[in-house]
């Protein structure tokens, strides 16, 4: 799917952040500002360009303008989300409206909606929150990726609340086999309880 993304350190330095704004000066300024915070940043003047190159250069977070030429920030966010469900998206805009702010968060999975001129402290805080979220999601996804197809089936039924016997019945396997699969799931995902598995699945 996408290229692996290096895990940022505990202070989130090294996290990858893309900036999209059809004003290249502003995009570059924000990118450089974020780079000074220790993020690995890159500015894009065209959202379509970023979408095309994203699989080769995924990011923890994307800061996107709302009003852009052909593809607006919201349409861009929807397509980006389809490419990578674990990327945090922040919107910035020069035309803030209440309706947009609500849509940005509720319908387009935005983490924040900031008006220009940008409040640096707030952008920073939101971005850190977004990167942390993205990192967690990616780590969970990585752990689940190690499961074999059968283990994945068992995992899915366990997090739905089924007990060992029920899972065995549903999959047509013996309870003993299920016990083994279950132990493998706990080991590979480095968890100890079904509650932790459920947390991982969210």
């Amino acid at each position: 799917m996408t290229h692996p993304l290096p895990d940022p350190g505990p202070d989130l330095a090294g996290a990858v952040v893309h900036v999209v704004d059809d004003d290249p000066d502003l995009g570059a300024a924000i990118a450089r500002m974020l780079a000074r915070q220790g993020f690995v940043t890159r500015a894009f003047g065209d959202p379509v360009d970023l979408l095309g190159r994203y699989p080769a250069m995924p990011a923890h977070a994307v800061v996107s303008d709302v009003m852009m030429g052909d593809l607006d920030g919201f349409g861009f966010a929807d397509r980006l989300r389809a490419l990578d469900p674990h990327v945090a998206i922040l919107f910035i805009t020069a035309w803030p409206t209440t309706a947009h702010a609500v849509d940005a968060v509720r319908r387009h999975g935005g983490l924040d909606y900031l008006e220009k001129p940008i409040d640096e402290a707030r952008l920073n805080a939101s971005l850190r929150e977004g990167i942390a979220w993205s990192r967690e999601r990616r780590a969970a996804a990585a752990r689940l990726a190690e499961l074999s197809p059968r283990e994945r089936q068992v995992f899915d039924l366990l997090v739905q609340g089924h007990g060992n016997k029920a899972v065995a019945g549903l999959l047509g396997l013996s309870p003993k086999t299920i016990e083994d699969h279950r132990a493998a799931v706990f080991a590979k995902t480095r968890t100890q309880s079904v509650a932790q598995l459920i947390a991982l699945s969210r």
Binding site: D25, L26, A29, E115, K116, P117
Partner: peptide, 17 residues
């Protein structure tokens, strides 16, 4: 106001830097 806010965003970031 909106038009002015765009270049001002850049200006503010660079000025702080």
């Amino acid at each position: 106001i909106h038009e002015a806010s765009q270049p001002l965003s850049t200006l503010a970031i660079e000025a702080r830097h």
